[in-house]
Design a protein around this nucleic acid. Sequence first.
RNA 1: GUGGGUGUAGCUCAGCCGGUAGAGCACCUGGUUGUGGUCCAGGGGGUCGCGGGUUCGAAUCCCGUCACUCACCCCA
Length: 433
Amino acid sequence: MADYLPTEPYRGTRDFLPEDMSIRSQVFERLYEVIESYGYQRYDGPILEPTEIYETKSSQEIVEQQLYTLTDRGGRRLSLRPEMTPSVARMIAGNVSKLNFPVRWYSHPNCHRYERPQRGRVREHWQINVDLFGSSSSAVEVEFVELVHDMMAGLGASRDMYELRVSDRVLLNAILSEVLEIPDDMLHDAARLLDRWQKYPQETLAADAAEIGLTDKQFEKLGEVVAAGVDVLNDLSQEVRDHSMLMQVLDTGARDLITFDPLIVRGFDYYTSTVFEVFDADPANRRSLFGGGRYDNLIGMFSPQQVPGFGFGMGDVTILDFLRTHGLLPDAHSDVDAVVIATEAALFDTGRLAARRLRAAGIRTTMPLEVRKLGKEISRADRAGARVVIIVGQQDWAAEQVTVRDLVSGDQQQVTLDQVAPAVQAVLEQPAR
RNA sequence: GUGGGUGUAGCUCAGCCGGUAGAGCACCUGGUUGUGGUCCAGGGGGUCGCGGGUUCGAAUCCCGUCACUCACCCCA
């Protein structure tokens, strides 16, 4: 008894069989369309990167526990990219003198993180990454807010299905240090506490706060800040307001497109101002769908230049969950339009001629590889998703004709080889299905 | 890393007070010679996740292990 190898894909990774691939492609092609309508250009890069580019700016958790790392034959430490932002920063930094800023780029890489799979999270996911480099204007924020809404609309989502929540590291730090008078060395931990605010009961949060070193009074005030929402911003100094990109956005017409939420923190250390996350309104998907923000000095690890950036990543796992939850998943497309069936081996060559005519006309066409009963082949063609079968048989061919059958209506007609492509095209253009 | 649930045919599952495996769907063939989506008949296909234990005998009980899954931790 042989021991067979498992056919399941490696844990946390997925096979995309044609049906799954069709759905995934359709979803992402809609997104490409919207992104490109904003003038973004697509790029790509290597899946392997030097480990160092993740060690300085990504979150500690990712580097220590979630990175797939390897050492090459030359002793270089490499990692499968866990996200695209450091890679694109590297590319921008390396080409800074050639580029015409602002640069609008997007890509669709697969990213890997070693962690336990669960709803909304796997070990390999496909992520649309959209970035803009070279502008410190809050117009960038406005552009991204609009882009996000247009992308969601492109997927068929209405505004009540999701929420775009934003915050700002500048505001957050100001609130924590100016309003709550939390010392600088405790800011990071305090921000993390906010990040967890909604998931835990007050007692747990209070205990954590005490552990961090917050006083009871500070903890109490933290609660008030959360409850206050936008109003908390009134207490901030003018200097802070001037530094905050988000404050400027809140002064524009884009104000109505976002919800200020001080609980939006995000894990990456490289964010410097605006941060945002999009949430599903349906409680089935508790995790944020996607998010991003402003990073004003990510290029800094590669070059002395200062190039501000803004970007976000949108993963396929959460977005497909979202679409499934809201009944917005597209149907899988058929990959074939027509099947040419020769009823006997002697007619294969004739069938091939017909198939070539059809393909030349842009009609996706297959032919059975063995002779079977005609009924079986029609049935297979139907299941394969073909709209039309072309029957090449002795009776018709004696008069130099073949039969074109519409599998939806059942109508059929005899045509010559010259007429095959237009006849099939005419059927394909008819609505049905 | 921690905890819960689940692992039987390609898929969805039944069988689980122990006696050596079933249904529906799917698939293949046929119902004569060139017409599918309905019907009828027949057929192929299973290491019952894996390993060990108890037993005359285990899919069924016990232990271990792995995988999947949900949640936690954390995070996109």
